[in-house]
Design a binder for these strands. Sequence first.
RNA 1: GGAGAAGUACCCAAGUGGCUGAAGGGGCUCCCCUGCUAAGGGAGUAGGCCGUUCCGCGGCGCGAGGGUUCAAAUCCCUCCUUCUCCGCCA
Length: 424
Amino acid sequence: MLDAKKLRNDLDEVKEQLKKRNEDISALDDFTELDHKRRNIIQEVEELKSKRNTVSKQISEMKKAKEDASEAIAEMQEVSQKVKELDEELRQTAENLTHLLLTIPNIPHPSVPQGEDEDDNEEIRQWGGTPSFPFELKAHWDIASELNILDFERASKVTGSRFVFYKGLGARLERALINYMMDLHEDRHGYIEVLPPYMVNRDSMTGTGQLPKFAEDAFQIQEEDYFLIPTAEVPVTNMHREEILTDEQLPLAYAAFSACFRSEAGSAGRDTRGLIRQHQFNKVELVRFVRPEDSYTELETLTGHAEKILQDLQLPYRVMNMCTGDLGFTAAKKYDIEVWLPSYNDYKEISSCSNFEAFQARRANIRFRREAKGKAEFVHTLNGSGLAVGRTVAAILENYQQEDGSVAVPEVLRPYMGERDVIR
RNA sequence: GGAGAAGUACCCAAGUGGCUGAAGGGGCUCCCCUGCUAAGGGAGUAGGCCGUUCCGCGGCGCGAGGGUUCAAAUCCCUCCUUCUCCGCCA
């Protein structure tokens, strides 16, 4: 959510900034009118309430003095009726205004390259080069089925398409990665470990920006107004919804492992094979609450924490600075980390590291105070995958495949794999 | 899931319709007093949000949302959370 005061003062400038996103922002045209209407009603209704408060007190005194107050009471009956009508009108107007604000995307940071779509994203750096294979390489789903460590067929029988059973050393590899990532972030990068709820309520989904605009991307629980989390970002960021943090608490950093659930609406036919696009997948998510002035150096720190995993795993990757047209609704700036997938002969997103500035904090009302008596300010929130576990498994299977069909185990994972050095 | 009880400020807590724009404690901050400390005395402690003609004024705030009333922490309804007991369960 953007700052209503900023929209009031610099609407044209905001529009100019948002145009770069290549998105429909015509809803903003109604802002000024709604904002004025709201403030006019407030003035009118508060004047009446003030009068009512004063006269009510007089009525009380008149009654005590045994005077006749019926005239004043009759008058206040009318005032109260009017107040009721105006309050309703105000509620309606404020709701419209809030809804409008909730559907306007974040303003891109000046360091975000301007562009229309993913082709305009800017490569920041590469790591690890691209490996060549002296034999015919296989896609991870073929490697996995030959090793009997992933079972897509039975998962579609038991549930449906885009679900998977991990089996044997496949399941072990997934679990090893989760433990490896969590240990690293907790022990070396200073994150507090969190195991969050996998369902959240509507306010939480609104706080981080999944609702109201992107309802079709989420799975919703029928009996309750709950949603399966599409990422641990939602429960973890919302942990501090409606809170005022102290300055000493910042920067506050959480690492959370969770399953993630996405309906993948509109992705029919894309990445249909393998682990890349599932309705349920595991992810380790890093979430940071920081002082506004620190958020851009924090974004670099956060991205570095995610990159460290890939470096330890010796997986080639590149870091992309997402352009204005590919930024996503909530981010002011976003780096995608893309891992090399030999079967795609291309890089594929494995982590997304974003600075939301105050966009989520304003929606979720997460603030901090620099001094005990100081004014509460919005924090900046950031998050990034560290990493998507399923895609990491895919990358390991493909990059570590060997001619005989086996897969070498990355060295850092061996302690987590019962000291095995190969999956065969 | 059933039955009961409770949600008031940083914490505890009084409060059954109008001097409650919330008593009283505790804690915290500042001051006084006594070599230091403890004890004692005094003052402050509703923040937050919203509006505004912004060193001021006004509105809303007693779990949340509605309702009754000239007037609601107080009466009524719905919901949420916590606690106790029962049931079920990993």
